[in-house]
Write a protein that binds this DNA or RNA. Structure first.
Lengths: 222, 222
DNA sequence: TAGATTGTTAATCGATTAACAATC
DNA sequence: TAGATTGTTAATCGATTAACAATC
């Protein structure tokens, strides 16, 4: 069987909504709820219940008519579907404020993200420790990956790029060079990568564009 | 004419792609290019030229067959359409690493964003200056807005929320209280706001979900 | 049992792409 | 003029929503 025939095309909007449900479900679990219905979830987020049901269906979970879904089953199904039940070993490059924000945010740790080391080109940062992670010289990225593999048997799967735009492509190339299979890019520039590397860009400008455009159109309408 | 009949529904994906084109067009201008074609832009970003043409069309700009679009006209049209040619006065609440990242990033300044003051609840930060902006006590947000209006005649249009999830809703309520008409939320929680306040959320978890899901599905396919 | 809910198929809606005329 | 490009209408594709049967 060819890989292409096995990888179904999943609706990206559904994948993007799952973390929202997950957060709500964890709160429900903390309240001691055993089951939850799509109607309830939809109501919480102002959506249609059919959409929630379709979204949950892609994880493979099933509920019981009249009753709903078991909260713990649902949490497990979403986490497993997103790959958040396994550790994702990552390197982060660019220890500016954005890089620090990611290193300090515990939310991603709960999603399996394990940033094992941080890198920067600025010598004044070398040796600094951020939330338990040492800042290393960018030059040592390959050596660090190799040592990690040799000593702990760990493979770096993901590279997080939080450098300025102009530095992003060379940094991404370095990350691909050490064998990462996914790049999470925060720099405001599209990166050119081999097609077998999974790529995702955080587009803050796109978000700002939607906001300001709506704000200005609202003004015009008044 | 009712407002609802005047506000056309614009394709959000198109609005989100405009900043990408804009960045490219500014580079083109710096290189001294006078005109650029959709074909060229599409090629740069791996899209179809029709899509680029449709995207540009929503700004109201028009090009010339055989020639293309004038670079300076196009830049002006996109910036005006997005509301990036006018200053947007904003308050930022939450001076953690994420808040600092936004205060220090000059890219948004080029998009008209003018964060005039930053607020936090943590007294150890009060009086600190970040990229020229003083950190003030959250308590003083209303007084600061009022003084700004009285002394400089400036209205705070946007609130940027970079506090932890649990603090986000009360902070948003405060911002709405001082009259902001747009909220840009970085906290991983959906905010409840009056319907006349424009709202946009930066969903880092959604981005991470897409990335890890693809990474794990790729693994399965191998 | 009746009502609420799941799961699925069909209809609708919106965005992308194809096709092609207009034009410089 | 011929070829490249814009602008627009029609076709396709994908996601959302409606409708409804199944079921606890």
């Amino acid at each position: 069987m060819k890989a292409s025939s096995r990888v179904r095309n999943l609706p990206t909007p559904s994948v993007q909504r799952l973390p929202v449900y997950l957060r709500f479900l964890k709160e429900a679990r903390n309240r001691g709820d055993d089951v939850v219905s799509c109607t309830r979830i939809a109501e919480e987020f102002g959506q249609r219940s059919v959409q929630v049901r379709k979204d949950l269906a892609i994880t493979g979970v099933s509920g019981r008519p009249k009753v709903g879904y078991r909260v713990d089953e649902l949490i497990e199904a979403i986490e497993s579907f997103l790959g958040w039940d396994v550790k994702t070993t990552a390197f982060l490059v660019g220890v500016g404020n954005l890089g620090r924000a990611i290193l300090n945010y515990e939310g991603f740790v709960a999603h399996g993200l394990d940033v094992v080391a941080a890198f920067d080109a600025n010598p004044t940062l070398f040796g600094q420790e951020i939330n338990g992670r040492l800042v290393r010289p960018l030059d040592q990225i390959a050596a660090t990956a190799e040592r990690l593999r040799r000593e702990e048997g760990r493979i770096v799967e993901m590279g997080i790029v939080t450098v300025p735009a102009r530095a992003a492509q060379p940094v991404a190339d370095k990350l691909v060079g050490i064998g990462v299979r996914a790049i999470w890019n925060y720099a405001p520039i599209r990166l050119d990568l081999p097609s077998d590397v999974v790529y995702e860009e955080v587009k803050l400008s796109a978000s700002f564009a939607v906001l300001t455009n709506r704000l200005r159109r609202r003004d015009v309408a008044e």
